[in-house]
Nucleic acid binder design. Sequence first.
DNA 1: CTGAAAGCGCTAACAC
DNA 2: GTGTTAGCGCTTTCAG
Lengths: 359, 359
Amino acid sequence: MNDTPFPPQRQRRATIKEVAQAAGVSTMTVSRVINQRPDVSPETRQQVLAVIQQLGYQPNSLARSLIQRRSYTLGVVTAGLKYIGPSRTLNGITTQAEELGYNVLLDELPSFNTDPVQPILDTLLARQVDGILWAVPEIGSNRQWIFERLPDLPVPIIFLTTQPQEGLMVVSMDNTLGGYLASRHLVEQGCRAIGHVSGPLDWWEARQRKSGWQQALSEAGLPISETASVEGNWSSASGEKAFRQLVEQYPLMDAVFVANDQMALGALQVAHQAGIRVPQDLAMVGFDNLAEAPYFWPPLSTVQIDQQELGSTAVRALVQMIEASQLQNQPLPSQSILVKPELIVRASSLRTLRAIDNQ
Amino acid sequence: MNDTPFPPQRQRRATIKEVAQAAGVSTMTVSRVINQRPDVSPETRQQVLAVIQQLGYQPNSLARSLIQRRSYTLGVVTAGLKYIGPSRTLNGITTQAEELGYNVLLDELPSFNTDPVQPILDTLLARQVDGILWAVPEIGSNRQWIFERLPDLPVPIIFLTTQPQEGLMVVSMDNTLGGYLASRHLVEQGCRAIGHVSGPLDWWEARQRKSGWQQALSEAGLPISETASVEGNWSSASGEKAFRQLVEQYPLMDAVFVANDQMALGALQVAHQAGIRVPQDLAMVGFDNLAEAPYFWPPLSTVQIDQQELGSTAVRALVQMIEASQLQNQPLPSQSILVKPELIVRASSLRTLRAIDNQ
DNA sequence: CTGAAAGCGCTAACAC
DNA sequence: GTGTTAGCGCTTTCAG
């Protein structure tokens, strides 16, 4: 027991009524002042502002939202925040939302595959969010609910990392392009037997990346054998296991496109242990451009995806939809946005033995 | 232009009044039903529930919070979500909040050092959050505002990653212990010249980790020279640079405690290039236990900190404070919680050449 | 330029 | 069990 009471005596929040009384005006006048309306005389305004200052008055957003039917709040649904990808996206979301004057009500699903989503949507809607940002990757059938629920949603909703489709507003990374860029680069390095460690194929993104790999091989006239790819689950452990299997079942392999950097790290470790020199014996390209990738050994070539940009783009689009729908105008047509990835070349894929780029 | 209008015609949200009319009862009865009060006849309840179902009625939380003076919302302030640490903590926060029936209003500071914080607090308070969770690490003077603002905060607040102090509710990791465990382990491995790559020393956590290192050396009777430590900024690039400098200014060094795994990764790369064998020539321990750490080369010994646990502990404590203060009871005394870290030993610090632990 | 009245959607407090 | 009245804190509408 200590004698300092904690928490300290709570201050009651002042109301607009109290401000009005203290300033000797009506609540309407105070309201005009806090809303920066022009139709208040300078003296009255000063007077009111002084009282507000003195009382530490802060308008109650709840009451405001209630009457204005506008909460300036975005409902953001995410999953897997313990991984760096989703959190980088969230970073872009919060930053952009803040800039546009919106608050973020965050909901993290317990798993990527959470079902049903009904209660989550309901909670968000009950809180009167102005729009919803669904930032959970498309996996298996976790988009099934959309066509059931979408028609009667009272607010705009936008989907991240989703197969673009009619009637849906989607912002996604062009994963196919990413897989293609990585694999074409390997072709250009003179590799002719290019394997693939894919992500879990119930993930839409994993399928896209794999299809980019297939495209690049086809284009180069290289055969795509069944044994040239193995499925992982994004983790380094799975990358280790998958790569080990790949080496075994595809002994001719002289390059590999690994669907994310974490799995590539696992693969690199197998290579070390097995005495496979990277890139001399085997060239490797990853995906994601983790902050750590330049410091892998050797530094890892990879595909850069700007997840923050993805998040902020989605927020901008959502806010546009919200504002359009508030104006009673014809709402925006559905329109998908595909963000382009970029190839980053480092030592792990350079067959021509040049000085290793450490940065 | 396509002819499917998007978004589809918005459904107006039904109100309690409409439900009441449709069910032929008063709004009060509907209110009783949705609040699961016992004093409604079974028939009436059924009747009302049917109408609710049919109309897809969802009570408006804003209106509810307004009258109940309770929003069941936690204001969470964070920073640096693009880094894995803060997002793992956030993961723990959202999960625990959900479980306890609270929503999360998220605010990410543009930088760790953002100042002033006044507007952020005001926004949260305007939205009538029931409590605030300040999940920004203590850096430089970014806690200065506390004693100015704390006394008149109308809701409980809890601080993460903060120097425990009288009058403040704090949940932190025991960083000193972590640094101590790492360094003592190196001593036990027979190392006698143990260097340190610290984090930026304006971070409280960095100072704590360094002081743990000092403690372990003192305890072992080893001298702590000025040249035995260099400051980094948490990034791999800074780790590379700092370690390079350390090797130069402290040539006798046979072990190093690096204040996080990312910097350790940079240091490992320098070691590779310089032909310093880890752990034979130099033992290394990191801090954080990144998911990637077991796949570094060699696998990195490190200090595990459970950041999710940190977040969920803070939420539990905050909700307790909220509930205590609602009961008009004597509020809880300030009381700090220190979460313990754990040493994880892998190949990078094992001088006795055993089989390398790849898992 | 300022204020009075009404009401956003809901529930506390009381009646019956 | 159920309804009535009042009001949470604010803004809309309209009057002056």
